[in-house]
Amino acid sequence: MYKHLKQGAACCLALLAFSSQAATWTLSGALTTHDPDIYKEGSTWWIVETSDTGIGVKYSADGKAWTQGVSIFGSGLSWWKTYNGSTTGIWAPDIKVWNGKAILYYAVSTFGSQKSAIGLATATSIATGDWVDKGAVLTSASGDDYNAIDPNFYVDSSGQPWLTYGSFWTGIYTTRVDSSTLKPTGSRYHLAYDSTGIENGFITKNGSYYYLFVSKGTCCAGASSTYHISYGRSTSITGPYLDKNGVDMVSGGGTTLDAGGSRYIAPGGESYNNGVMARHELDSQNSYNPVLFISDLTFSNGWPTY
């Protein structure tokens, strides 16, 4: 029901991802993934992902042929054990280049637990990979009305950086982060909720609107998985985010972007960069293993589509 940890990051299966949608790229190489966060630095495409061993990494020269890289902090860090027991698994990382350095947020937790933390690491660049961990920047505990996982970093139109986070419980939140420390500061804002389950909030901007994408439903239950990608939009980064029918996402609103197809089901763990959206989908013909999909994301009449 909660964030899926097993994703076989070391496996470089040459799977062919396809779709009836013309904007979906044909991919090859290391395509097993979960919660792929995509970012293009210079001419190189990068993905960081949920992994059983640290923070999983993929890279590609063209965004289509993918190679599995060496995990970041693959042996684990000592402070993680407070939040995930004795495992080295990390969830839903988010990578960016901002203010002259690479930054990497990631989640540390266990299934169904609110004893969670969002960690932060920085590096000279993604390609250099000289990551230095800064420890936990946001935590949650049993009884809180939020869960500190699924981080997403975004800089608004005024240059103010924000961190969006949350999973299940009361849903998705965002808060300002300090431009120097990159740690949360000030009030938090409630962006979205859904009684069927909601996580993986991701914000981007197009024209005069901010768009909030989320993964709703159950991610990792084989044929019973109900994961799907939904969205809303707002003129303010703090909301309210309304769907096409004008329903606030805090009240369960959200227009479906992708509900999957016949073979590949339960899309989610979405991210957006450089005009494309990455996500995983479960292969119903291969033990429901999560597979990487990438599509061009466009905006038509103010609404996203691919």
Rank of each mutant, 00 (worst) to 15 (best):
A121Y: 01
A121E: 00
A121M: 07
A123R: 14
A123C: 13
S125I: 14
S125D: 15
I126M: 13
I126P: 13
A127Q: 15
A127G: 15
T128N: 15
D130G: 12
W131K: 12
W131L: 11
D133R: 04
K134Q: 09
G135E: 00
G135Q: 01
A136Q: 01
V137L: 00
V137K: 01
V137F: 00
L138K: 05
T139Y: 09
S140M: 05
A141S: 13
G143D: 11
D144G: 09
D145C: 05
N147M: 05
N147I: 10
I149N: 05
I149P: 05
D150G: 04
D150L: 02
P151T: 02
P151R: 01
P151E: 06
P151F: 01
P151C: 04
N152G: 12
N152P: 02
F153L: 11
Y154L: 10
Y154F: 15
V155P: 06
V155Q: 09
D156L: 09
D156F: 04
S157E: 15
S157P: 13
S158Q: 14
G159W: 02
G159R: 01
P161C: 05
P161H: 11
T164A: 15
S167E: 11
S167W: 10
F168P: 00
W169Y: 10
W169N: 14
T170F: 06
T170D: 14
G171W: 08
G171L: 00
I172M: 11
Y173P: 05
T174R: 04
T174S: 13
T175S: 08
R176D: 04
D178N: 11
D178V: 03
S180N: 13
S180Y: 08
S180I: 10
L182T: 02
L182Q: 02
K183E: 02
K183S: 02
P184V: 02
P184S: 05
T185E: 09
T185V: 15
G186E: 09
G186V: 07
S187P: 07
S187Q: 09
S187T: 10
R188G: 06
R188H: 07
R188V: 10
H190Q: 12
H190M: 13
L191N: 11
L191H: 13
A192Y: 04
Y193I: 07
D194A: 13
S195A: 14
T196C: 06
T196M: 08
G197M: 04
G197D: 03
N200V: 13
F202S: 12
F202P: 06
I203T: 00
T204W: 07
T204I: 12
N206M: 09
N206E: 15
N206Y: 13
N206V: 14
G207V: 11
S208F: 13
Y209M: 09
Y209F: 13
Y210N: 02
Y210I: 06
Y211S: 08
Y211E: 07
Y211R: 07
L212D: 00
F213W: 07
F213T: 02
F213H: 05
F213G: 03
F213Q: 04
V214P: 00
V214W: 00
S215L: 09
S215F: 03
K216I: 07
G217V: 01
G217W: 00
C219K: 00
C219N: 03
C219W: 03
C220T: 08
A221T: 01
A223H: 07
S224D: 14
S224W: 06
S225Q: 01
T226G: 07
Y227N: 06
Y227C: 09
H228L: 08
G232R: 03
G232L: 06
R233Q: 14
R233H: 12
R233K: 15
S234W: 10
T235S: 14
